[in-house]
Nucleic acid binder design. Structure first.
Lengths: 150, 150
DNA sequence: CCTCCATGGTTGCATAGGCCAACGACCTGT
DNA sequence: ACAGGTCGTTGGCCTATGCAACCATGGAGG
């Protein structure tokens, strides 16, 4: 496959995936939307972060994140902690309930993916995962988050 | 990387991509949303199909597709043609304007991706593309897509 | 031909997710 | 102290979607 075609294929297939993922998430866990799930996941992964970080990472408006956070807090899945040095900042953390639900949903999602990817060789799986990570971390991703530069 | 971790990474990274793609699409071509773009793309690729086919392929509700189609038609990008054997069916086709816009947007998207993927070896690109195709075409996707299959 | 049910699409209604702009609170450098 | 930037909230508004009800058409049985 020529690089140009590969590139086009990549964007198209990613899009198809994105579209289906949303619908599938709704069917799998009506309790936790794909958005909420990803936010919780990021919190777990990062071990607590600011709303602004979430916004930057997912290229969302801060107001959007603010509302999502409010909803998640109201649902008891996350909690806000003050930042020691900066009172403007709220450090978001998973609560026990949040961790539990996240784990449950992650498990069911993982099962679905695993089934879907059942006949893939382990090597292909890890290579695929690596490509995705590389893509998302790649040059240009800086354009989406505003000077959070690690 | 263990398969289970790879699987989890895949879903997470795909989601990040999906989220950013939407925002990026808005910046790149405000005239054609990501949804519209993908629908037009599918029409071009399939050489005309029914609204139901689009709904099935993207796991969207038929009402959603119906509205999108209405908007795209009003914008003059697609047209509905009667089906010879079945009057219920509208076969959707790109108009010249639709084809033109689709080509323009595809080109700008491709340029962005190309820049993003500039330093990837051609082999990795095609392998990445192949993985995505394989994933989307995998068992289970048959539920969504009726025999457009290669 | 008429009836019953399936299929393709549309429309009403409700919800979620997003963006932008304005604002209040708080930090920082001068 | 003041100016300018950052973090998060809110209000206003729009788009995308799903579900359910509904209309028109097509098909299979009587």
């Amino acid at each position: 496959m020529q690089p140009a075609d590969a590139v086009e294929t990549i964007q198209r297939e990613m899009t198809v995936f994105a579209r289906r993922a949303r619908a599938a998430a709704g069917r799998m866990h009506p309790e936790l939307s794909l958005v909420s799930y990803t936010l919780l996941g990021h919190l777990e992964e990062s071990g607590g972060c600011r709303a602004t970080d979430l916004a930057a990472h997912y290229a969302l408006d801060k107001s959007t994140v603010s509302r999502q956070v409010t909803a998640l807090e109201r649902a008891g899945l996350i909690e806000r902690r003050p930042h020691a040095q900066d009172q403007r900042v709220q450090v978001l953390h998973l609560t026990e309930a949040g961790r539990r639900i996240l784990a449950r949903v992650t498990e069911s999602r993982r099962a679905a993916f695993r089934e879907r990817l059942a006949d893939w060789p382990a090597e292909d799986l890890s290579r695929f995962a690596a490509y995705l990570v590389r893509y998302n971390a790649g040059p240009g991703s800086g354009r989406y988050d505003h000077g959070r530069g690690t």
